[in-house]
Amino acid sequence: MGQKVELACIIDDDKIYVNLVRKIIEIKKLSENLLIFKNGKEALDYFQLIMGNMTEDKLPDIIFLDLNMPVMDGWEFLSEFIKIKNNFEKKITLYVVSSSIDPRDLERAKSFNMVTDYLIKPIELKKFEKIFEKNNAA
């Protein structure tokens, strides 16, 4: 086993979903800490703040990004995040997580290099564990 995921990040406006994922991560001890943002704007503000302070230890190892959110949706977040991502040395794995099964969304997500995979909700527990394991191994 590689090192354990220190910090995971969820960007999602669905409170129930976030609660449940938080529980899974707790029960399975998948990550030490968890960052939660309820839309793209809040997450982006956070990353811009880190960029200013260069406090890289506050950067997540893994991001789960929802698409459909108010204020700033997942797509807008992606196109903004691309612009600042190279300022960080740390490798950040990003998964798009959505309940949309629209093939156009899938295609569009794959067109971003930084998107590791497109996960369709609901994500099974085992899948969650695998994703974290894979990230550890990397």
């Binding site: 669905d14 979903y17 449940l20 459909n68 099964i101 909700k121 609901p122 099974e124 527990l125």
Partner: peptide, 14 residues
Amino acid sequence: LRSHSSNLSLIVEL
């Protein structure tokens, strides 16, 4: 509708 049903599935797993 899927976003709600997928939450339900998650709960069942939990």
